[in-house]
């Protein structure tokens, strides 16, 4: 099958890559662009480790064809922090609240959390748990992740609105 050239913007950088059209976005990010922060835990859409944002919407990149990201903006875990010095508040909260153990689910969890907080800046605990229901974690039991996201919501709230 002929290769197809796609243009994608990942974390603000524009790339042009020639790929087999059947390859997943997760594979192309990891193998062609060498952005390995996106993990593959199942490659079947069941675990959420590969979650990235396309034009601000979260997707399982293992189930998304790379060609679908043509001329779109992709954000991966590597692109979330403002600068190497300054973590995103969700990242900060994950570090401080102990929401990370082996770390394999972490990137995907944080991207799902980002999507959740973008849509619902002050979620309840139940809403956080719902928002994470597509992301599996085998290490933490989720409680510290849920706590971290609640904490990130407070950090992100405009002054005076945080609880």
């Amino acid at each position: 099958m002929a290769k197809q050239t796609i243009e994608i913007t990942v974390n603000g950088d524009r790339y042009e890559v020639a790929i087999d059209p059947w390859r997943s976005l997760a594979e192309v990010l990891r193998e062609d662009l060498r952005l390995t922060g996106t993990k593959i835990g199942c490659n079947q859409g069941d675990c959420g480790a590969c979650t990235v944002l396309i034009n601000g919407r979260s997707v399982s990149s293992c189930l998304t064809l790379a060609v679908e990201a043509h001329q779109r903006e992709v954000t991966t875990i590597e692109g979330l922090a403002k600068s190497p010095q300054e973590l995103h508040p969700i990242q900060e909260a994950f570090v401080e609240k102990g929401a990370v153990q082996c770390g394999f689910c972490t990137g995907g969890m944080i991207m799902s959390a980002k999507q959740l907080l973008d849509k619902n800046p002050q979620p309840t605990e139940t809403e956080i748990r719902q928002g994470l229901s597509g992301n599996l974690c085998r290490c933490t039991g989720y409680n510290k992740i849920v706590e971290a996201i609640g904490d990130a919501a407070r950090r992100l709230a405009p002054a005076g609105e945080g609880k």
């Binding site: 990891r30 193998e31 060498r34 952005l35 390995t36 922060g37 996106t38 993990k39 593959i40 991966t76 875990i77 590597e78 979330l80 922090a81 973590l87 990242q91 994950f94 570090v95 401080e96 102990g98 990370v100 153990q101 770390g103 394999f104 972490t106 990137g107 944080i110």
Partner: peptide
């Protein structure tokens, strides 16, 4: 003390390397 893990920063930024990340 409840010291945050020293590798957490690498893990939340996607920089931490796992075997399959190597080429």
């Amino acid at each position: 003390a409840s010291i945050p893990r020293l590798d957490a920063r690498q893990k939340v930024t996607g920089q931490a390397l796992y075997t399959d990340d190597l080429t």
